[in-house]
C-alpha cells in the first residue's frame, strides 16, 4: 500500500515536471517557466521528506550491522 502510494506520487511528479501548459514574469522578475520549476523543487523536497518520514527502511540499518 505504502509502496503503491509512493510510486503513484513519483509518477505524478514526473508528469507534472513536463509543465506543458508563457513568458510572463512572476513578482515582476521571475519568468513563469523558472518559478514553476523552483516551486517544483520545493514540492520534490516535501515528497521525499514524507517518504523518509513514513517509509524509512529501518531494517536495512540493523541488517548492515550484521543482524539477520
Amino acid at each position: 500500500m505504502k509502496t503503491g502510494i509512493i510510486i503513484f506520487v513519483f509518477v505524478a511528479l514526473a508528469v507534472l515536471h513536463q509543465d506543458t501548459w508563457n513568458g510572463n514574469l512572476v513578482f515582476g522578475f521571475i519568468p513563469v517557466g523558472l518559478a514553476y520549476h523552483a516551486c517544483y523543487s520545493i514540492v520534490a523536497a516535501i515528497f521525499w521528506a514524507c517518504v523518509v518520514k513514513f517509509a524509512w527502511p529501518d531494517r536495512m540499518e540493523k541488517w548492515a550491522e550484521g543482524e539477520d
Partner: peptide, 20 residues
C-alpha cells in the same frame, strides 16, 4: 528559461530517488 527544468528540477526528484 527551460534550462532549469531541463537540468535542475528533474535532478531534484531523480537524484533523491537514487539516494533513497
Amino acid at each position: 528559461v527551460g534550462t532549469y527544468g531541463l537540468m535542475a528540477s528533474s535532478s531534484g526528484l531523480i537524484h533523491a530517488a537514487c539516494f533513497f
